Simulated scan of single mutants.
Amino acid sequence: MKKNYTKIILDLMMAITFVLLMNPRVLNGLPFHEIAGLIIGVAILIHIGLNYRWVVNTTKKILDPKLPKKTRFSYLINILLLISMATVIITGILISRVVLPSFAVQEGHSIRGIHGFSADATLAFVGLHIAVNWQWVLGICKKAFKSKEGKLRKGVLVSVILSIAILAGGIQWFSSTASSNTVDFKQEQMQQSGQSSNVNTGNTTNTLQGPPNGDFREGKIHGKDGHGGSSNPFLVVLNYFVIWAAIIIPTYYLEKRILRNKRKSRDFKPQVS
C-alpha cells in the first residue's frame, strides 16, 4: 500500500510540473522550463520502475485474446505517451539554451514545432492515461486520505503538501542558479566575441548569435511555439487541469456505460438448457 501512496504523490508532482512546463514563461522562464523538463524525464523512469511488473506482464500477454480490452487500450496509451514524452525531451535538448546549449541545433524552427506538437499530444495522452486509471486513483486516494472510520488522515495530507512544496522550492532554487550562471556565461561569450572581432576585422560589433539575456528569463525564445496565456503558476495549473478534466470526465462515464451495457447483455443472455 505504501508503494501505491508513493505512486500517487509522484504522479501528482509530475502532473503539476508538466502543466507548468506547458507555458515557458512560468516562474523563472526558460531556466525553469529546461531544468524541470529534465527532472520530469527522471521522474518518468521512476514511474516506469514502480510499475515494472505491470509493464512486463502486460507485454507478455499483449497478444493474448483473453487480455481485457481496457488493459490493451491502457497499454497502447502508455506506449504512445512514452513516445510523445521522449520526443518532447529529445527535441527540448536539441533546442536547449540554458542547461545544454552545446547540444542546440542552429535554426531549429522545425524542431521547435515538433517540440510544441509532441507536448500537446503528451497533454492529451496524460489525460487519457488518468481517465483509464481513474477508478484506481479514486480507490487509492480514499484509502490514503481517509481512515476506516471515515476520518481525514491529516498526516498523509501534510506529507503530500510538503512534497509538492519541496519540489517547487527545489526547482525554483535550481532555476535561479541556472539563470545567474546563464547571464555570466552570455557575458563571457559576448566579451570573447568582441575580442575576436577586434583581432580579425577591427570591428567591435558583437557578433554573438542568440537571444538577449532577458529572453532567457521570460521564455521569449520560444516565440510562436510557446503557449500563450497568463504566466501565473496557479492559473496555468488550473487551466490545464480543467483541460484534463474535460478528457477524464467523458472517458470515465463512457467506460462506466460500456461496462453497464456489458453486464446487462450478460444478465439477459439466454441460457442453453
Rank of each mutant, 00 (worst) to 15 (best):
M1I: 08
Y5M: 00
K7V: 00
L10E: 05
M13P: 03
F18N: 10
N23C: 15
P24N: 10
P24E: 11
R25Y: 01
A36H: 13
V42T: 09
I44E: 08
I44P: 10
G49V: 03
L50F: 06
L50D: 01
N51G: 04
N51D: 08
Y52L: 08
Y52G: 02
K61Y: 03
I62F: 09
I62S: 03
D64K: 08
D64A: 10
K69Q: 05
K69N: 06
T71L: 12
I79K: 09
L81A: 06
V88Y: 06
T91L: 04
L100A: 14
P101K: 10
S102T: 07
S102L: 03
A104H: 13
A104F: 09
H109N: 02
S110A: 14
R112L: 14
R112D: 10
G113W: 02
I114S: 04
H115V: 09
H115K: 10
G116E: 09
S118H: 12
A121L: 13
A121R: 07
T122F: 15
F125P: 06
L128E: 04
I130D: 01
I130E: 05
I130V: 11
A131E: 11
V132D: 11
V132Y: 08
N133M: 05
Q135N: 12
L138D: 04
L138H: 03
C141Y: 00
K142R: 15
K142S: 12
K142W: 13
F145L: 05
F145V: 05
K146W: 07
E149Q: 00
E149S: 01
R153G: 02
R153I: 00
R153Y: 03
G155T: 04
V156E: 07
V158K: 14
V160T: 04
I161V: 01
I161Y: 05
A165D: 01
W173K: 08
A178I: 04
S180W: 06
M190V: 13
G194C: 14
N198C: 09
N200Q: 14
G202F: 08
G202L: 08
G202K: 07
N206I: 05
T207G: 12
L208I: 12
N213V: 15
G214P: 05
G223V: 12
D225E: 14
G226S: 08
G228Q: 11
S231K: 07
N232D: 13
V236W: 09
V237P: 13
A245K: 04
A245E: 06
A245H: 05
I248D: 07
I248A: 03
I248M: 03
P250C: 04
Y252A: 02
Y252S: 02
E255N: 13
N261R: 02
K264A: 06
R266V: 00
R266H: 06
K269S: 15
K269T: 09
